[in-house]
């Protein structure tokens, strides 16, 4: 794998949490690379550290040691405010429970990350309409999350994740709250993001059917990344 193609690199990453007076290690000496345009599925039992690993490379949590590089940026050297700016430009989030803002419409939810860019109102509208087209929800743009099905909400979340054209998409159990049909549709859509838009996706899942869509599946066991 050439240097140019690497989207994410983790070197010697360790993470532990403090529980009372006890130090509980969650991730131990994690080393791995994800190529640009790759769809990676992280699997493992509950408590194995999958979500923690995802949080670290998405820049919403900080490693105790080690280096995480996304693109050309060493995100472990960024402070809190710089990380926020970095996330806004480089990471798209897809959550298990969609995490849409209930008081905003589908259009406004998708538009949220664009408020952090310098785009004009008209430009933002054009971008949102294009994203709605991609997730086939143009006719639902004025609906609130409570007026949409689970599958539709997750599609809105995907549109929100891709709206700023980020380098990586991180998905934490994206099908965990969906029925089989909706889950299939969401996985097709994520596959479409990789094949047609060249996105790099790192997905945490318990669902073997969802993992089937990934190019690479890695397993975590008690904080240690198993060889694929």
């Amino acid at each position: 794998m050439s240097e140019r193609e690497i989207a994410v690199r983790m070197s010697g990453v360790c993470k532990s949490y403090q529980r009372g007076s006890q130090n509980v290690p969650v991730l131990e000496d994690i080393n791995f690379e994800i190529a640009s345009g790759e769809f990676l599925a992280l699997m493992g039992p509950s408590g194995s550290g999958k979500s923690t690993l995802l949080n670290l490379l998405a820049g919403i949590d900080k490693a105790d040691s080690g280096i995480i590089t996304v693109g050309n940026c060493n995100i472990t050297s960024l402070d809190d405010s710089e990380l926020a700016d970095w996330r806004a430009a480089n990471v798209g989030f897809i959550f298990q429970f969609y995490n849409l803002i209930p008081v905003l419409t589908a259009f406004e939810n998708i538009e949220l990350p664009l408020l952090l860019t310098g785009l004009t109102r008209r430009e933002r509208r054009e971008h949102v309409l294009a994203a709605l087209e991609v997730v086939s929800l143009t006719d639902r743009m004025d609906h609130r999350p409570s007026q949409l099905s689970g599958g539709q909400q997750q599609r809105v979340a995907i549109a929100r994740a891709i709206i700023t054209d980020p380098a990586i998409l991180v998905a934490d159990e994206p099908t965990g709250d969906l029925d089989r049909v909706s889950a299939g549709e969401i996985m097709d859509l994520m596959d479409h993001m990789v094949s047609d838009f060249g996105k790099t996706i790192i997905m945490v899942t318990h669902d073997p059917r969802a993992a089937e869509k990934a190019h690479v599946v890695r397993h975590l066991e008690k904080g240690i990344l198993m060889e694929s």
């Binding site: 919403i60 405010s81 926020a84 700016d85 996330r87 806004a88 429970f97 995490n99 949220l112 990350p113």
Partner: peptide
């Protein structure tokens, strides 16, 4: 709480 987490995750500052 989850809305706050989401807004922070997508890049809104404190």
């Amino acid at each position: 709480v989850s809305e706050i987490g989401t807004l922070r995750a997508i890049g809104f500052q404190r």
